[in-house]
């Protein structure tokens, strides 16, 4: 019961945030992948950095409920490629696909139906295709600090620096793109 309430509450906030933040908007996603519209890129950068800082602080306080994914390097790279192709073709991913279908987008609903077929085929090929690939270069459920024997704060600080740089550069590019499109209009 508690799981149900928590899931609905956090999921509800997440779905609302995806819509209001413009990530559940395939035009914003494609604009970012084409490096023409930096709204989604900047939103994602802040999302990731705030989540990283908060998770690190919760971890320091012993209050985090972590769930680190296994680093099977070949499976993760292959999966990222397939997901990337679908992402670049549609502008959707699993979470934003659900959110966009709920916002009246018929193409997103069809994408969600495609996702259910993808899940079914994944189940069917899992025993002979997924299991062996998952065993190649399998490093286990490990974090970057664990793997390298370094302190988490160093990674958090470094990624905040990289994230800040992405925000700064995309801010400058965004301005330039806006200026040139403004002058291009009659």
């Amino acid at each position: 019961m508690e799981e149900q309430v928590l899931g609905l509450l956090i999921g509800g906030l997440f779905g609302a945030g995806l819509i209001l933040g413009g990530l559940a908007d395939p035009d914003k996603i494609i604009g970012t992948l084409r490096l023409k519209d930096f709204h989604a890129m900047r939103t994602i950068a802040v999302f990731v950095l705030v989540g990283m800082l908060g998770t690190w602080m919760l971890g320091q306080a012993g209050l985090a409920h972590p769930s680190v994914k296994p680093a099977s390097l070949v499976a993760v790279t292959l999966g990222g490629a397939l997901l990337g192709i679908g992402f670049g073709l549609t502008g959707y991913c699993p979470g934003t696909g659900l959110a966009c279908a709920a916002a009246g987008r018929l193409d997103a609903l069809v994408t969600v139906i495609g996702m259910f077929l993808g899940a079914l085929v994944f189940i069917l090929i899992h025993p002979w295709a997924v299991v062996p690939i998952d065993k190649i270069l399998a490093k286990g459920k490990v974090t970057l600090p664990d793997y390298t024997g370094t302190k988490p704060w160093m990674w958090v600080a470094g990624f905040c620096g990289i994230g800040g740089l992405i925000l700064w550069i995309s801010g400058r590019f965004g301005k330039k793109a806006a200026d040139s499109s403004a002058t291009a209009r009659p």
Binding site: M52, L78, L83, A119, V121, L144
Partner: peptide, 30 residues
Amino acid sequence: GGFLILMGARFAHGCTSGQFASGWAQLSLS
């Protein structure tokens, strides 16, 4: 696209939420 998205996400043990956003939050190697 939807077919590739879910198939890829499961091969990768997570999608743009569970693997990407949560992966960065937890500093996972993957």
